[in-house]
Design a protein around this nucleic acid. Structure first.
Length: 558
RNA sequence: GCCCCCGUAGCUCAGCUGGACAGAGCAACGGACUUCUAAUCCGUAGGCCGGAGGUUCGAGUCCUCCCGGGGGUGCCA
């Protein structure tokens, strides 16, 4: 378990600040949050701190002077080699190159787990994502939620949280009944009967496939003239549909720890649902109006009340959600729950947080990560996602066209907030210039290839003379490799896993530049070769770690 | 109407909870292969960060208004 270098540096700066106050060079001040940044400009060192600028007005001294006072008191010992002050008041910090090179050994030891930190301290986080209705196959948009949620879970796991990935299966309610009636119609049609599709029934051909499959399994055993579909038929269809969804997600390399059934919330006399509803009633959070039961969400931050139980007596989807979040927080005791939703559910955020508070949880412990729509393109041509035009619609079709690696990498290149254009042509291309997933994969494969070539030449990695790594490309590569732990910290804290793709490209580029400028395997220079092989091993570990977080394979040859 | 997201290079997008001259990839142009994978690398060009005010020592980043794109606003999910 590594500590991010940034944290080590931050500690030394904080010590210097406290020392300055202790010896009277600075007046006592309110403790402030120290932020250590990576300057954009290489000349400004490895890290920079703006604490002097932020302190200047409260201590009534010029920023440059404050910076000097702090800078003088920063220990010039590993990992720090040099500290300088630059206008208007930045403290610039250069790391000790020798110390950095030594860190490569930890990287190699960590392998594809490099970057792991202890920010989360084992706190339990649930990430619930996809959770699409099991009334049809997953669509392309569900793929974005799948990749986003899975990568976020991976990042949180790397940051030291105890993470559970969950899929919520809406297997109750009106939609499921409609699913059953549709399937029943299709099933009867399998036997040449004239069965009308229900109003608003599911038109997709997949329903015919389901009916056909069930006919193969049980023949005419579930034919029923009463009008309502036999429960066995509906249940079997649902099971097949859920299995298909699970298989589609597995193709994307997304797997869940737990599939939570909505129907299970209603099981038994003391069901989760009834307990949660009682909780709301006891708290005076419900009101009856027009024969329906409403949640008084406006008292807890939402802008309007919401129906929990229809006048027909049937609970709404929202009522299930209340029970579900009661289950998450009060029964299962997660410290934090992150729901990953499509942006079209944006209107449900306030009421769901309010519901968490109303059932005795902490509304702020529920975080909702919204992601925007995905549009498909082929080069310059917009791909219309509609069943009528026969164009690509389902997640499975997308994966079959571009592969899981490209699908995951591309889906993760944008922030969740931004609408996304997904270029099928680029994603399907093997060319690394079109397809950055391949650029990174290729860099990893090249590491493996170089290590094989070295082995054949009788050269082995060694840390004896890492001081021979003096080229600028080597220093840059070392720095880039060592950056991962703090990136993990940032991604985890901000719930923004998409930065990992940019990092992976940047690391791959640093390695490729090193490879291009520095001959690694040179029999006549065994010591330098061995040092460079160590750097190659660490690069491979770094690339493998980044690719693992993205969920893309790290091949040894391409 | 009200609420949420977005508007940064020709294109697709980053920009670290305000910081040092605005970045990447692709596309464009010019170079580099007797070499461990050229599936690569080096260089050039390209921007009033949608517009107008404001806060600040400092704004792509925060506030207000306007323009443009998307989503939401059901006893649907």
């Amino acid at each position: 378990m590594a500590r991010a270098t940034r944290d080590l540096v931050g500690e030394l700066v904080r010590n210097a600040l406290e020392l300055a106050q202790a010896d009277g060079a600075l007046p006592p001040i309110q403790p402030i949050e120290l932020r250590i940044e990576r300057p954009k400009e290489r000349d400004h060192g490895d890290y920079a701190c703006n604490v002097a600028l932020r302190l200047a007005s409260s201590v009534r001294r010029p920023p440059m002077e404050v910076a000097e006072v702090i800078s003088e008191r920063i220990m010039r010992s590993a990992p720090i080699a040099d500290v300088s002050v630059a206008p208007p008041g930045f403290i610039n910090i250069a790391l000790d190159p020798e110390w950095q090179r030594t860190q490569l050994l930890s990287v190699i030891e960590a392998g594809d787990q490099w970057g792991r930190i202890d920010l989360g301290a084992g706190r339990r986080v649930q990430v619930e994502f996809v959770s699409a209705n099991p009334t049809g196959p997953l669509q392309v948009g569900n793929g974005r939620g799948a990749v986003l949620g899975d990568a976020l879970a991976a990042v949180l796991d790397a940051a030291g949280y105890q993470v559970e990935r969950e899929y919520y299966v809406n297997d109750a309610g009106a939609q499921i009944r409609l699913f059953g009636r549709t399937l029943n119609a299709r099933y009867q049609q399998q036997f040449g009967r004239e069965a009308a599709m229900p109003d608003g029934g599911y038109q997709g051909a997949y329903m015919i496939d389901l009916a056909s499959q069930i006919k193969d399994e049980v023949n005419d055993r579930w034919l029923d003239d009463s009008g309502d579909p036999p429960a066995e038929l509906s249940d079997r269809g649902l099971a097949l549909m859920i299995e298909q969804i699970r298989a589609d997600l597995a193709l994307l390399r997304v797997e869940f720890d737990h599939w939570q059934r909505e129907s299970a919330l209603y099981d038994g006399d003391a069901s989760t649902y009834s307990i949660a509803m009682q909780q709301l009633r006891d708290g005076g959070m419900v009101v009856e109006k027009d024969g329906a039961v409403w949640f008084r969400a406006d008292e807890l931050g939402d802008d309007k009340d919401n129906v929990l139980i229809r006048s027909s007596g049937e609970p709404t989807y929202f009522a299930s959600d209340v029970a579900y979040h009661y289950d998450k927080f009060l029964l299962r005791g997660f410290d934090t729950v992150i729901d990953v939703w499509g942006a079209d559910h944006q209107g449900h955020v306030a009421r769901t947080k309010a519901a968490v508070s109303a059932v005795g949880g902490d509304g702020d412990a529920l975080e909702v990560l919204l992601y925007q729509l995905v549009h498909l393109r082929r080069g310059d041509a917009r791909v219309r996602m509609s069943k009528r035009t026969g164009e690509i619609v389902t997640l499975r079709e997308l994966i079959e066209e571009v592969g899981a690696d490209a699908a995951r990498f591309f889906m993760l290149q944008r922030s969740a907030d931004a609408q996304m254009d997904f270029d099928l042509e680029a994603a399907a291309s093997a060319d690394p210039r079109q397809n950055p997933a391949n650029y990174v994969r290729y860099a990893h494969a090249r590491c493996a290839s170089v290590l094989r070539a070295a082995d054949e030449a009788g050269l082995a990695p060694s840390s004896d003379r890492l001081d021979l790594l003096q080229e600028p490309q080597e220093a840059e590569l070392v720095s880039e490799i060592l950056r991962l732990p703090e990136l993990v910290a940032d991604m985890a804290a901000k719930r923004e896993p998409h930065h990992i793709t940019q990092y992976a490209q940047s690391l791959a580029q640093a390695f490729t530049q090193f490879y291009d400028h520095c001959r690694i395997v040179v029999a006549e220079e065994p010591q330098r070769s061995s040092a460079r092989l160590t750097l190659t091993q660490a690069s491979q570990a770094g690339l493998a770690s980044a690719l693992r977080l993205i969920g893309v394979e790290a091949p040894d040859a391409m």
